[in-house]
Design a protein around this nucleic acid. Structure first.
Lengths: 144, 144
DNA sequence: GTCGCTGCAAATTATTTGCAGCGTA
DNA sequence: TACGCTGCAAATAATTTGCAGCGAC
């Protein structure tokens, strides 16, 4: 069995566990996402899936991605894109981000200020800065 | 001199270096951003600055933030929020993000898969995952 | 006077929602 | 039959843009 197809099997299993239906649309969206390393956006996934499955709508893609993310079957790159948040502190530091409310807290950790990227990264481009993101649930949201 | 005000002095200096005007609006936006650790969004900054400076518009705030970011006087939390990007790979890995085109590449680095957050982070909340983000310029954008 | 910066209003873009129909358990 | 899932169209929310006026060099 091909690698991607093994994953699709695991996907069916995950759907069973979460009690959601593995509809054709969802399977294709999942397959598309596993088939690429491009970290595509919703629109791109929509365009590609539609080539193989002409009857699918963009909002199904959005809805499905949101569902997958909620079930932790896929993840989102970078912060939860609610709205842009800014930071006036340009000293090296890191962030704790609450998955629930989006709260962002500063984390200082000297040891993390000079993490050395592995050499293979040169293949991708030149690194200007290294930044650690901790994701979790903040105190306030935990106590609710 | 108070800490924030020292920073505002540095801000004037930075404006001189970059050849942009340190208008009252810009000074207030910068001051607001340095005065808080909340990593506010544009709307929040707008609301707060307006209390002290009634004549300012939301788009000036947006424009100013964009300008500051470009000049590297401030930074943005998380990825450049163009649009949401998704990742079907749930194995622990890290990301290289191109500042110019938004390209996202996967980075595998065993040593980074179990970075231990400093104890003070418990003060903020419970950490579920640790993720390193490398920001830089990708090969394609460098050669242009 | 020139040119950068601003406010206003309108435009654009990404994402979400309400609703009716359809298909599967 | 019931209910989850879908497509469509309309709504919402964040951010950007065009334009005219104003003020600093």
């Amino acid at each position: 069995m091909e690698e991607t197809e093994k994953r699709v099997q695991a996907f069916f299993e995950a759907c069973r566990v979460h009690g959601i239906r593995a509809t054709p649309q969802r399977v294709e969206i999942y397959r598309e996402l596993r088939n690429t390393e491009e970290h595509p956006d919703a629109e791109t996934i929509y365009r590609r899936v539609r080539e193989r499955m002409p009857v699918i709508s963009l909002d199904t893609v959005y809805r499905t991605l949101r569902l997958f993310e909620e079930k932790e079957v896929i993840s989102r790159v970078g912060a939860l894109n609610e709205r842009a948040r800014f930071d006036g502190n340009m000293k090296p530091h890191h962030h704790f981000i609450c998955k629930v409310c989006g709260y962002v807290g500063d984390v200082y950790c000297g040891a993390w200020n000079d993490l050395k990227p592995p050499k293979e990264v040169e293949r991708l481009g030149r690194v200007h800065s290294v930044h650690v993101e901790l994701r979790g649930v903040c105190k306030k949201c935990r106590s609710r």
